[in-house]
């Protein structure tokens, strides 16, 4: 028997979403966790990926470089732009053909849209937004299952979910929760093409218009430095101050949900349970109280500098370093000191 650990490679216009590679890294680690069990049963374990789109051979090959043993490609005009029905149908067909044991999909807008439809069609379980993934025994001697762990009830509880009898065991995973694997220099896997008979007429949805998101559309998940602000900023002008600091540090601006709800900044800047998960090298939290729904999205950052007037603010519980003080004094001082030092350096 071949035990297949599968990853969906998400691409838009032949650019892969990096979460795809992060998931290949996870699949590789989990495949290793069942290697002994498989070997003694005479089974082999493989990490494979599937990509759907139009002219996506280059993306498939990139998948091999990130460590997939094999990539299945589904190509065609109907897949040129993502549509739920077309992509779901394609994935369901390849899954039914190869019967993977585990199947991961990135919890992006596209991935979440797709994963729910695919899992339902397959009649299998799906655990959304996992933050930890392991292969482990639930019952002694019964073989390892996917242990999918995720926050529930607004991050107040961490639940580990299993899918005992249905296959594949499916999970969606947010970008940046798991590290990016190294690219391998010598690719050993290969690519194959799957024929999926779907005609344009069978797909109900037609794309009328695509409006490119403004250049401002922030990719905060992949920034090394984030300067995040909360309600204390008092309005959109407050974010200009944070932008100045982000600029001198070469980072991006992020925000809590109330700022987004108030329209001070667009939603693609929101960090947290209903926003994005980030793990920058440096996260500066200015005027953020540190509600659990915010913390779950940023607490794995390498260095957290929190600035808050209230010494009892919960953000200090996760901060590497806290400054109790007024952000409108501290942030300008930070900007000034970094700038001054640059000038000294260039002098």
């Amino acid at each position: 028997m071949i035990r297949r650990f599968w990853v969906f490679i998400e691409q838009v216009e032949c650019t892969a979403h990096p979460v795809s590679w992060e998931l290949i890294g996870v699949a590789r680690r989990l495949a290793d966790q069942v290697r002994d069990e498989a070997t003694s049963a005479g089974d082999t374990v493989v990490v494979e990926a599937v990509v759907v789109g139009k002219d996506v051979k280059a993306v498939a090959e990139e998948g091999l470089q990130y460590g997939a043993d094999h990539v299945y490609v589904v190509e065609g005009e109907v897949f040129a732009h993502y549509r739920n029905q077309a992509y779901a149908r394609a994935l369901v067909m390849v899954v039914q053909k190869y019967k993977p044991e585990v199947f991961f999909i990135g919890a992006t807008t596209l991935g979440r849209d797709l994963a729910g439809a695919v899992a339902t069609s397959l009649g299998t379980g799906l655990t959304a937004d996992c933050t930890r993934l392991e292969m482990g025994e639930v019952k002694e001697g019964a073989g390892k299952l996917l242990l999918a762990t995720r926050p529930a009830f607004g991050g107040n509880v961490i639940a580990t979910i299993v899918c005992r009898t249905h296959r594949p065991q499916m999970s969606s995973v947010r970008p940046r929760v798991f590290p990016m694997p190294e690219k391998v220099s010598k690719v050993k896997g290969d690519v194959s093409y799957e024929k999926i008979p779907i005609k344009e007429e069978e797909i109900g949805a037609k794309i009328v218009r695509l409006i490119q998101n403004e250049a401002g559309s922030a990719k905060i998940e992949y920034a090394d430095v984030l300067v995040a602000g909360g309600r204390a900023l008092g309005g959109p002008e407050g974010f200009n101050l944070l932008k100045d600091l982000a600029d001198v540090l070469g980072g991006e601006v992020a925000a809590t949900r109330p700022c987004v709800d108030a329209g001070w900044i667009s939603v693609d800047h929101q960090v947290g349970q209903t926003g994005k998960t980030v793990r920058p090298k440096l996260y500066i939290a200015a005027g953020i109280s540190g509600a659990i729904q915010h913390k779950v999205g940023m607490q794995d950052s390498d260095f957290i500098l929190a600035i808050n007037r209230d010494p009892h603010a919960p953000i200090f519980e996760v901060a590497t370093l806290g400054i109790v003080g007024d952000l409108f004094e501290v942030i300008p001082a930070l900007i000034q000191q970094v700038k001054d030092a640059r000038e000294v350096q260039h002098a």
Binding site: G155, Q299, A319, L321, I323
Partner: peptide, 15 residues
């Protein structure tokens, strides 16, 4: 189910 891991708070400086 478990509780979220508690992170250890770092140093705090008061301006």
């Amino acid at each position: 189910t478990t509780q979220p891991e508690l992170h250890t708070a770092g140093e705090v400086i008061n301006t």
